[in-house]
Structure formats: C-alpha cells, structure tokens
C-alpha cells in the first residue's frame, strides 16, 4: 500500500473569490475534517494533487506545516471539462480504522464468445468495500476471460484480498456477457410515415367533459 505526502498550507480566506484566486496561483482549495476535531481549510499544490489522483490510491498523507496527517479522499470536484480541480475534501483516518470506500473494478481477459458477436458489459465500474484504512486495495482486478454467453459476475463472486469485505449489494452484477442485439432498421416508407405522425406527440392536458356531461353537471347544480 503506497501513500504519498502532499504539501499543503492552511488558509484562512473563505469564499468563492478567494478560492478562484488560489486556483489562479495553481493551488486547489480543500478541507480536512473528521474524528471530532476542528475542520482545517487547506490550500493544496494543484499539480501534486492532480498527479496523485492519476493513481488509484485512496489513502493520502497531508503535510500540514510541521505535522503529517493521514486522510481519505472523500470528494474531488472538477470543472466542466474535467481538467481543473475545483476543490478537494479529505477525511481524517486512523490506520486501524474500518472504512468504507469505493474501489475501481478492472476486467482482465477477453471472453471467447465476444469473437462470435457477444458483448461484454461492465455494469459496475466501482464497488464499495469495507476494510482497514491501510489495507484498501488500489483496484480490484477480475478475470473475465472464462465467461460464457449469458454469464454474469456478481459482487459476491469478486475475489477480494484478505480483510476486505464488499459493502455493495452482493447480488449486484459487475460484468455481464450477453448476445448483441440486432440493429433495428426501419424501412424508409415506414420511417417517413412515422416521422409524419411524430411531428405531433400526444398532449398532456385534462380531458374536456363532453356536452352531455356538462349538461348533467348543470342540472345537478340547479337541483342543489
């Protein structure tokens, strides 16, 4: 289990304008919280954090001035383009503490049936696991080469390292090998007819009462 020490500084300035100024300097605003201690506002070196996030490590060591703290990455916010990190959340963690984190699942191998047109679908790209903080695996690798048509790999089938338990629903499907569906090609005439009808979809409106119903309603009112 590798952990990286990321250099950070504490900051006192809050607010979006200050956060923007930090980002302009190549830093990322962040926060460290948890364990009943006071939350600490941080400014993190953007490049170092970005490099760290390219790895699949969950546990991070934060160098805050003289002291070092271990933390879990709780959330990372990106801009629209997924390039710039806008903000990062860290939660304090002890090495022997049980934590639940989401770990990436990677499939290995190619099922033979894919050559015959079957499609291997990865339904879950990450799985929640519970384990000690220093035992969090970077990724979970799954052998999918042996799958046959209509074969499935469930969460309960995953081979997890010792001390690691799956927190996701054990009956959730992770990988699924199914036959490819034939593409439905509409005939040109049918498509044209469909488009003509398609120009006017059904309107969602309250149904207007018929004349008979309105007359009956008026008579009832007169009786009252």
């Amino acid at each position: 289990m590798k952990t990286e020490a990321i250099k950070t500084e504490t900051r006192s300035n809050r607010g979006s304008a200050n956060a923007r100024r930090l980002r302009d300097e190549g830093k990322v605003p962040g926060i460290l919280y948890g364990h009943g201690e006071e939350a600490v506002l941080l400014s993190i070196d953007g490049r170092q954090l970005s490099d760290f996030l390219q790895t699949s490590h969950h546990l991070v060591k934060l160098q805050i001035g003289e002291r070092q703290e271990s933390a879990l990455i709780k959330e990372v916010q990106y801009d629209t383009w997924g390039k710039q990190i806008m903000h990062a959340d860290f939660a304090r963690v002890a090495m022997d503490e049980l934590v639940t984190v989401s770990v990436q699942v990677i499939g290995r191998g190619t099922p033979k049936a894919t050559q015959a047109g079957a499609v291997l679908e990865q339904v879950l790209h990450s799985v929640d696991i519970t384990c000690k903080a220093d035992e969090i695996p970077d990724t979970i690798r799954v052998e999918v080469g042996h799958l046959e048509l209509d074969g499935k790999i469930f969460v309960k089938d995953l081979q997890l390292p010792a001390g690691v338990k799956a927190a996701s629903d054990p009956d959730s499907i992770v990988f699924l090998l199914q036959e490819a569906r034939e593409e439905i090609v509409a005939a040109p005439a049918a498509a044209a007819a469909g488009e003509a009808a398609a120009a006017e979809p059904e309107l969602i409106r309250p149904v207007k009462p018929t004349e008979e119903e309105t007359e009956a309603a008026e008579k009832e009112k007169e009786k009252k």
Binding site: A186, A191, E195, A198, E200, P201, E202, L203, I204
Partner: peptide, 21 residues
C-alpha cells in the same frame, strides 16, 4: 426512427437562451 417525446405539455416552445457551460 428519430427520437421525439411521446407526450408533451405544450406543442410549441419559446426559443430560450443558450449560455453557460
């Protein structure tokens, strides 16, 4: 066949403005 809604509340819509990301 091209996509389109099955049911709508109004037949026509105003243009709207495209801005922001």
């Amino acid at each position: 066949m091209a996509l389109m809604p099955k049911r709508v509340k109004f037949r026509k819509s105003q243009r709207g403005v495209l801005r922001g990301e």
